[in-house]
């Protein structure tokens, strides 16, 4: 049985967000995704009991409308803020994976990193253990999935996950997370984000296959699971990060090196 894993090579990332867009295009309201897990209308029973018409269940358009409403408040005063607010509201719709551009430090000691947040599909997944209804479960190939029809949205998996990988799907009102595009993997295809990435940042494959690219990278390079700095808890995360050599940009040090090189060149000449 395969044991799927992903490697994220941060050094190669351009920050183009194509992976996020591919995830949305592939999964949001797509007929191709998780056909076996299409949940019923949220609160169908409760809506019936309270006599609430089904149309009142918030559809995607509701949130888009909300985004427009919220951003309109700032459009005349601060167009940039309006843009951010709109993005924030819409992003709540679909956050299975995100790429954060993290800038820290102070010039000349600048820190920069593009951090990819995604479900780690941990071998010892705490979200699967704490789930009271088996809504969160792990397949034999290690992919952790959520069955929205069983999810009671108690939030215990959110408190159990150390990687901020879970969120509420505002359309189904159940817990949602990255599925490694299980519906594509089952057909022998790559996850949408992996296939779309123009810089080959995300590499997907079978960790048990010694010849797979993923196995080779994990073995040959010092790939670390969990975060670019290693795991947070011992959950045996299966998303590996290749530690970046460039995310600490010490301008002073670079200048010093240049000066030394220049001096050496002068001395030699």
């Amino acid at each position: 049985m395969a044991r799927y894993a992903m490697v994220i090579d941060i050094d190669r990332c351009l920050g183009c967000q194509a992976c996020v867009a591919a995830c949305i295009a592939e999964n949001l309201n797509s007929d191709a995704s998780e056909l076996e897990f299409q949940p019923k209308q949220p609160f169908s029973v409760l809506s019936g009991l309270l006599g609430i018409p089904k149309e009142q269940v918030p559809p995607a358009e509701y949130f888009v409308k909300k985004a427009v409403e919220e951003s309109d408040k700032y459009i005349d005063v601060d167009p940039e803020k309006a843009k951010t607010v709109a993005q924030e509201v819409v992003s709540k719709l679909w956050t299975r994976t995100e790429v954060f551009r993290i800038v820290g430090g102070k010039y000349p000691h600048v820190e920069l990193m593009l951090y990819h947040r995604i479900c780690q599909h941990c071998d010892n997944a705490p979200c699967v253990t704490v789930c009271p209804t088996h809504a969160s479960f792990q397949r034999e190939d290690g992919i952790v999935l959520v069955d929205p029809n069983k999810c009671i949205l108690c939030g215990s998996c959110v408190t159990a996950c150390p990687y901020a990988a879970r969120q509420v799907n505002l359309l189904t009102k159940t817990i949602d997370k990255c599925t490694f595009c299980a519906h594509r993997v089952d057909k022998g295809l790559l996850p949408a984000c992996v296939e779309t990435c123009p810089a080959h940042v995300r590499i997907f494959g079978d960790l048990d296959d010694p010849n797979s690219e993923v196995s080779q990278i994990v073995k040959r390079h010092k790939a670390v699971p969990g975060t670019p700095h290693g795991p947070i808890r011992h959950t045996a995360a299966r998303v590996y990060y290749l530690p970046s050599s460039n995310y600490i940009v010490d301008v002073e040090k670079v200048e010093e090196e240049k000066e030394k090189e220049a001096k050496l060149m002068t001395d030699q000449s």
Partner: peptide, 26 residues
């Protein structure tokens, strides 16, 4: 009331997770 989907509550019985602490609360 805190459950987001109380209409799925029956899953607590039909799909009981023996290692989940919350399942045992019920």
């Amino acid at each position: 009331l805190d459950l987001g989907r109380p209409d799925h509550f029956l899953s607590m019985l039909t799909s009981f997770n023996i290692v989940s602490r919350i399942a045992w609360m019920g």
